[in-house]
Computed example of a mutant assay.
Amino acid sequence: MLSPDLETRLAKVLDRLDNLLPKTEAEVDWSAKAFRWRRRNYLGMSAGELEPVERIAFVEESVIINADRQKEQLFRNTEQFVKGLPANNVLLSGARGTGKSSLIRACFSKYCNQGLRLIEVDKSDLRDLADIARMVSHRPEKFIVFCDDLSFEFGEGGYKELKAILDGSVASSGDNLLVYATSNRRHLMPEKMSDNLASSMDEDGELHPAETIEEKMSLSERFGLWLSFYPYSQKEYLSIAKVWTEHFGGTINEEWQTEALQFALQRGSRSGRVAYQFSRDWAGRTRLEKEDA
């Protein structure tokens, strides 16, 4: 019979060993609304697990402006998905800082109370997509796998796995999982002039793209819904900055527009991200000045 002290020490050792082992599917906290897929090292081996997000950065639908068409299509597609109707994987592509990621987060914020769940996956972990699909396949919730800033270089891991999960795999991803991805590249892979030089034209004048181009385009084409985003005009930039300034409790005065334009000029971009950053700075400065006055 073991002494109480020895039992206590053994219990502590077992707890430490348990932390060194990967969590089983039964140990996933399915009450969470958002997850991150994380690969961890356990006793010299690597395994992925769903890590609940404790503090979710929700985005209100009202702060997404100058993207009405994209918002309508993404929300409609997501509502179809949540209601168990056919829906598409989505690729949001275009200029940086134009609200692609924010729109996905706003969409999730709107539908998370209707059973929608979000799984954030780094590009480097896309090779685990089949494992993620298997883990959630028997769950009643609807899951969106969210990959931000997606693009691939030649020979990079995850490319084939993503193609398989989007379309073409023998193993179905099920009816409760979709992929929403953002990218600054529409075709997700670098394009070279030599690829076009390898294209050919038949005797009827029909252009046949080279196999390399076909391969690069095939991944993008597996997303059923493409939403494109474009650089903002000065007017659009200021309208976004105004929304965020009011959101942060800042004051719109005569100096505000001049400051907003100078802020964008210093950063060489009139993007939504720059408008957001300016608004945080402006609202913080002006509110601090009022407190110190």
Rank of each mutant, 00 (worst) to 15 (best):
256 W>G: 11
232 Y>L: 15
170 V>W: 03
43 L>K: 11
134 R>H: 08
257 Q>H: 12
252 I>S: 10
101 S>M: 08
68 D>K: 08
68 D>P: 05
114 Q>L: 04
167 D>F: 04
39 R>E: 15
194 S>M: 09
98 T>G: 08
157 G>K: 12
10 L>P: 03
100 K>V: 01
36 R>T: 04
177 L>Y: 03
41 N>A: 15
95 A>S: 15
256 W>Q: 13
88 N>C: 09
192 K>T: 12
215 E>Y: 13
159 Y>S: 00
228 S>L: 07
205 G>Y: 03
271 S>P: 05
48 G>R: 06
123 K>S: 08
35 F>G: 00
254 E>V: 14
90 V>L: 08
258 T>Q: 12
108 F>N: 04
46 S>T: 15
133 A>N: 05
86 P>V: 02
246 E>K: 13
260 A>P: 08
147 C>F: 06
164 A>S: 10
252 I>T: 08
50 L>K: 00
137 S>C: 05
284 G>K: 09
288 L>R: 03
124 S>P: 00
1 M>W: 14
153 E>L: 12
61 E>D: 14
30 W>E: 01
147 C>Y: 04
272 G>W: 01
63 V>D: 04
194 S>G: 08
128 D>M: 09
210 A>V: 00
132 I>R: 01
223 F>S: 06
213 I>W: 03
146 F>E: 02
260 A>R: 01
19 N>D: 13
188 L>Q: 03
255 E>V: 08
120 E>R: 00
233 S>R: 09
235 K>E: 15
90 V>D: 00
60 E>D: 15
80 Q>M: 09
122 D>T: 11
141 E>M: 01
44 G>H: 09
17 L>V: 12
12 K>A: 15
282 W>Q: 07
37 W>D: 02
168 G>N: 11
65 I>M: 07
172 S>G: 07
108 F>E: 02
199 S>E: 07
7 E>I: 15
263 F>V: 01
48 G>T: 04
222 R>I: 05
162 L>Q: 04
186 R>K: 12
18 D>P: 03
21 L>P: 00
211 E>C: 07
287 R>V: 06
5 D>E: 15
137 S>G: 00
280 R>C: 07
49 E>G: 07
132 I>E: 00
219 L>M: 12
276 Y>E: 11
118 L>E: 05
239 S>Y: 03
225 L>E: 00
268 G>H: 04
282 W>R: 06
29 D>P: 02
14 L>E: 13
123 K>V: 07
121 V>R: 09
211 E>F: 13
193 M>F: 13
178 L>R: 13
45 M>F: 14
127 R>W: 14
1 M>N: 12
68 D>S: 11
242 K>L: 14
64 I>E: 07
66 N>T: 02
247 H>Q: 13
127 R>V: 15
199 S>H: 07
242 K>Q: 14
120 E>W: 02
206 E>C: 13
